[in-house]
Design a protein around this nucleic acid. Sequence first.
DNA 1: GAGCGCATGTAAGCTGTTACATGATTCT
DNA 2: AGAATCATGTAACAGCTTACATGCGCTC
Lengths: 171, 171
Amino acid sequence: MTTMSLRIALLGLLAAKGPSSGYDLAKLFEHSLNHVWNAGHTQIYPELVKMTADGLVSVGSEGPRGRKTYTITDDGTALLRGWLADHEPSIAVRSEMALQAFLLPLLDKAAAIAVVGRIKALYVAKLAGMTCQVPAVEASPFGRHALRLGVAQAEATIAWADETLAALTAS
Amino acid sequence: MTTMSLRIALLGLLAAKGPSSGYDLAKLFEHSLNHVWNAGHTQIYPELVKMTADGLVSVGSEGPRGRKTYTITDDGTALLRGWLADHEPSIAVRSEMALQAFLLPLLDKAAAIAVVGRIKALYVAKLAGMTCQVPAVEASPFGRHALRLGVAQAEATIAWADETLAALTAS
DNA sequence: GAGCGCATGTAAGCTGTTACATGATTCT
DNA sequence: AGAATCATGTAACAGCTTACATGCGCTC
């Protein structure tokens, strides 16, 4: 029942992009993995130390500015592949947006319309951000599937917002 | 930047369903709010104590079996409405499924197909669970919008899985 | 030499999960 | 009487966020 998805994400990035520093990995979280998982450097640095102790990654000698380059080990690769192949992903939801949707009847018509309109705007912007990076992602195999998934879910959310706005304005 | 979504969820249920015990609220999380948020009794009981101290709910005298009935206060109602109307929902994603999708190219064709197939099966089951409770939910205003949102997102995920399976088998 | 980006870390606090623990009431 | 359900809690641990803190190297 171990979750350890941060570990998996870090191992995945090391496998996909090759040896990297904690700083590099933090940047990759911001730019390439942001639709999937997020983590700041304060979480990444200690985790890399633990992963080194567990033999999942190895750390090379320090470069300029104290830079440490981590490389995935065979044990790390095995753990990563095993998790990918065997792990049943959790479908537990914890979404502030869905909570707002659930409680919408507590608001009057105008306020409810405003809330759904804001949700729509948020996802329209998110979708725009994703679609404009499609060309870059299509170049490498990684991230293509995840990006299509993100786009599909954002489109579904926007369609829900439109439908809900129509129902609210009609009532 | 306070999150406090557990508080909001509890206040929302108290507003929607009326005075309830912690036990009732835990059951409601399981049955009515499960597509939206989840929380166990070990999180709910201490939070209700804190919320009582903060004046957001009030607790009546103990009933049978030590049952305590909580009621939302005016302060609680004000906080709830304010959050609903003003809170910009976080769109940060942390999805094990999306992580698996991202890292799919690390697996060989057969393993990747198996992973996507399992994801599809999971969401087909989730969708079935949601659609069969649509009639019950349609009766009361609460949860209708959230349920439609859950259904739309599940359908989008299943469509993504079909598309991805087709692309994988073709390659 | 001033400023920016690179690069690493620690500490406090909040949130959430799992395991443990207890007792009352109702149903069969 | 035994089992299931009702009903409440505590404690330990894991995961994550925010704020704090430091210093190097490059460019203008």
